[in-house]
Simulated assay, not measured.
Amino acid sequence: MTTPTTGRPQTAYKVLTADQMAALERDGSFAGAPVDVADGYIHLSTADQLTETVDKHFAGQSDLHVAAVDLGSFDTSLKWEESRGGQFFPHIYGLLPLETVIAYGPLERDDTGKVKLPVAG
């Protein structure tokens, strides 16, 4: 789904380790992975960017999870910024609250190798 005024997706995705996913569930928010903390914001990817993000930044890792984040829940703390290959990525400058996560589950791939998006349920 995209936002009508910007054409940008309303949902983005955060890849988390099992420990990070457990912390998000336990604490009700997530301050970011080490790379997020170092960069000063939480990195998210759109559905179209997700598989490339996993392949580039999480290669060889197992027990990963994907959280679908409702971008409409954020105000000025959400910024779309140019990054890899000139693409614009959503970044959260602040915490990722659990209540903004609309679906999550273990990272799985389809028959073509594309990361499957989590389904609410």
Rank of each mutant, 00 (worst) to 15 (best):
T5I: 08
T6S: 15
G7P: 04
R8K: 13
R8Y: 11
Q10V: 12
A12N: 11
A12R: 07
A12C: 10
Y13M: 10
V15G: 04
V15K: 06
T17I: 02
T17E: 02
A18N: 09
D19K: 14
Q20A: 14
A23C: 07
E25P: 01
R26A: 15
G28Y: 10
G28W: 09
G28V: 11
F30M: 01
A31I: 07
V35L: 08
V35Y: 05
V37S: 02
D39R: 11
D39I: 12
D39Q: 15
G40S: 14
G40L: 15
I42L: 15
H43K: 02
H43P: 00
L44F: 01
S45L: 06
S45T: 13
T46W: 05
A47K: 05
A47D: 06
A47H: 04
A47C: 04
A47F: 07
A47L: 05
D48V: 03
L50R: 09
E52N: 05
T53L: 01
T53R: 03
D55I: 00
K56C: 03
H57Q: 07
F58C: 08
A59P: 00
A59R: 05
A59W: 00
A59K: 08
A59C: 00
G60I: 04
Q61D: 10
Q61L: 13
S62V: 10
S62N: 03
L64K: 06
L64T: 04
H65W: 15
A67E: 06
A68C: 11
V69R: 06
D70A: 14
D70S: 12
D70Q: 10
D75T: 14
D75Q: 13
D75M: 06
D75W: 05
S77A: 05
S77M: 00
L78A: 14
L78V: 13
K79A: 11
K79C: 02
W80N: 03
E81C: 11
E81P: 06
E81D: 13
E82H: 09
E82V: 15
S83G: 14
R84Q: 08
R84P: 00
R84Y: 13
R84E: 08
R84A: 12
G85V: 02
G86I: 10
F88L: 15
F88W: 11
